[in-house]
Design a protein around this nucleic acid. Structure first.
Lengths: 237, 237
DNA sequence: TAACGTTACAGATAAGCATCCTAACTAAAG
DNA sequence: CTTTAGTTAGGATGCTTATCTGTAACGTTA
């Protein structure tokens, strides 16, 4: 016994008159709407936003449906009409936020930068807090619940962490292709280090990401990464 | 309203006939014991061990006193006789575990290694899971609760994270002193990267620490760190 | 005399569900 | 072009069940 009031994890009454989580997204887009009062799309949005907010501030296990509906300005039945429980709501709220971030994505202007500038900027974009100031709390939550809710961990990894890292990896591969980065470098490990730097710094300082963290990280790795045909002053670039 | 049943955070009835958290450690060592049946020290230990186990498996917010006493094989009043609440119990349990780890500490034999070997071994020891396989869950929990319980975050940082990093930093300084590592390197950033590598890897793979992670991390940083008077294959320094 | 186990209890909080009522929209009948 | 029936959304409210917390009382033991 250690389950507060949360059922083992969704998977219970699956279907009823309710929307199954798998269909939720599709259903939200194009409802056939056979008749009756239509759902208010603003309510969906308000609930998802409130969920995200509570997720970041309270964490998954402390977040309660009551708080969410209160923040969203709706009532409990309204939420349960759309989602069967906390788990499914959380998944949708995360996907919603990640969709938003992808929509706001600005590609890098690789050609206008020096290789080191491009690398540094790519490192900067790996910062989990680059687009979400509460990212450390969120990651902490899902690290903490990784054993209990592995799907949530996987979701964050595949939809948030991995894509950011892939962009860095692509940048490095591009720099390889133009001869600015060595061919025989462990790029995966480099990406892991760049991502980890934000967590290392957070754990040691507990503060917001320092302005110069990406520069220092890139500066430390660049001597190893860069092709050695060009300039070498002393330590860094 | 978002507090489950947990009072704002300790600080409530502070003293009574109970032991205040500050005095708990001292009192546990040397109880004056005016008369009456003496406390069983084995119970203290059982409770602290059970707390640590629950902390790792359930996380701070899901851990309940009921589970702890059940695991420890004692009863609820027995726990409340010693600690006023969950927060104080958690602090003592963490300090207890960290004391244990320090006691089991084995210093590195720096002289018997090459500089790179020493660096790699020091990196290996920065792994949070080096001595505690549940470390990632623990760190996740306290990252998640960093805003709600900043003291717990600080405690972990000062008693677990920082000491491990300091050992790495000392190793690097030693290597500097013998001329194996450059003088003009951003050692703090290097340490941050080494620590972070374990989190980066965990977030990207979600598995146990790979055997070769320390080697890869050290391998990536070593060209930047090592003094350039000796061999330089191609890209170093 | 105080620790410990056993048992029981009160207060708090949460999850889900059930009603009842009103609002909004569709479709068919007039 | 109304009017009306049918259907669903949403608010308000209360209830049941399930935990967890912290205490209290009582008997036993060191």
């Amino acid at each position: 016994m250690s389950s507060r009031n949360e059922p083992a994890v969704g998977r219970k009454r699956q279907a009823q008159s309710r929307v199954r989580p798998d269909e939720a997204a599709a259903e939200r887009q194009s409802a056939p709407h056979a008749g009756g009062r239509p759902r208010d799309p603003a309510i969906e949005e308000a609930i998802l936003r409130a969920t995200r907010k509570r997720l970041a501030s309270d964490g998954y296990s402390r977040m309660t449906i009551g708080d969410v509906v209160a923040d969203a300005g709706v009532t409990r039945p309204t939420l349960y009409r759309r989602w069967p429980g906390k788990y499914e709501l959380t998944v949708d709220a995360l996907l919603y936020g990640l969709r938003e971030q992808r929509a706001a994505y600005q590609p890098m202007a690789l050609d206008a930068m020096t290789p080191l500038e491009a690398f540094t900027e790519a490192v900067r974009r790996v910062d989990p807090r680059y687009s979400n100031p509460h990212a450390m709390s969120l990651h902490g939550n899902f690290m903490a619940e990784a054993e209990r809710e592995p799907d949530l961990f996987t979701l964050i990894r595949d939809h948030a962490t991995k894509p950011r890292c892939d962009e860095l990896l692509d940048t490095l591969r591009h720099l390889q292709s133009i001869g600015a980065v060595r061919q025989d470098v462990d790029l995966d490990a480099a990406v892991t280090l760049c991502l980890g730097s934000y967590f290392g710094d957070y754990l040691l300082t507990g503060q917001d990401t320092p302005r110069d963290l990406a520069d220092r990280t890139a500066g430390l790795l660049w001597p190893t990464l860069r092709a050695d045909d060009s300039e070498q002053s002393s330590s860094d670039v």
